[in-house]
Nucleic acid binder design. Structure first.
Lengths: 173, 173
DNA sequence: TTTTTTATGTCAGCCTTGTTGACATATCTC
DNA sequence: GAGATATGTCAACAAGGCTGACATAAAAAA
């Protein structure tokens, strides 16, 4: 079965007969990414279930903990979901005492979000869980892997978003 | 704020005062993984919407196309969802002519799944889209990155699953 | 100062994709 | 023939996306 059905043939058929596999599509990396991400988010899921929270709560709690004082608009920009979707989970995090929402000081229309002590503890616990998995994988590959993987993952991000994300990563703390 | 609240302190407090940031949790990699995966699956999402399909359809179509003759049980094992969830999307893929389900030859209880011509074309188109993003990222990092990233991602997978996944990755085609 | 824009909140309803539990059928194995 | 296995299906529910509409307070602009 040809894998090049709908793309220009780079080499003439005479040079590369149909039995040559398509090496231009990195199937191994595509599938590894799927499996790795599935297990990466699986760790926190089990703990979050104890609190009646899901992945959406985790994402909110994580970014609020990492970027104290974050506004709603900034959080929406990070998560790329609608304010209605965000509000559903954020409201629960505030009501259960994991996140605090304070009216902005300069601009009183804004809300500045902060993790409470309980929120910080949960966020850190989840981050440590994911961190252990990441550090374990890095240890298997070698000390140079962290830097390479970070640059690779940054390269996967949409170019239009990349700058913003990297500035934010460098920023907090 | 201490980040070591719920874990054993590796260094005595006298050696590492509270203002030292916790380098043991790789926050940069945690967040990059989130952003990278979001954009990685975003590409196919837009195309799938034209067909009335979602991510679940993509996953099924992808693995069926890559592993012709796959059985329902094997697919369930890969996706780790319930047969009811699988059946919902698989049925749609069969009814719309992207996947073919044939009764097994040795064991007639089984179904062997195959992508149709249309299914192959769509699957390949989506894989090429994701492949372009991956290859672009690899090009930015360097030629040695592919191997390192593959080993890193494999290291993120649950140890209990890793062997099975890697055998299956090496296998098809 | 009035008007408009901005930041946030909220209601209502819909979709996809996961879940559990129950049950049916065909086929294989013992 | 009896039980185990592979699959299919019905019904109900939950999480977490979405759209559209509308409300309020505060800032910014006219």
């Amino acid at each position: 079965m040809s894998v090049m059905v709908s793309t220009p043939v780079l080499h003439p058929a005479s040079a590369v007969p149909s039995e040559a596999p398509d090496t231009s599509v990195p199937y191994e990396l595509i599938e590894l990414f799927f499996f790795a991400y599935r297990d990466f988010v699986g760790d926190p899921d089990r703990i979050l279930a104890d609190y009646g929270f899901g992945r959406a709560h985790h994402r909110v709690l994580h970014f609020v903990e990492r970027r104290p004082g974050l506004t709603i608009a900034e959080l929406l920009d990070i998560l790329q979901i609608t304010k209605q979707s965000l509000n559903r989970v954020l409201k629960e995090l505030v009501e259960t005492g994991f996140v605090e929402s304070r009216t902005g000081t300069q601009d009183k229309r804004q809300r500045n979000l902060y993790a409470t002590q309980a929120g910080r503890e949960l966020a850190v616990r989840l981050a440590q869980l994911q961190g252990r998995r990441i550090n374990g994988a890095l240890a298997q590959v070698g000390p140079e892997a962290g830097e390479i993987v970070a640059r690779y993952l940054a390269g996967l991000i949409d170019p239009s978003e990349r700058r913003k994300v990297q500035d934010a990563l460098a920023g907090p703390r």
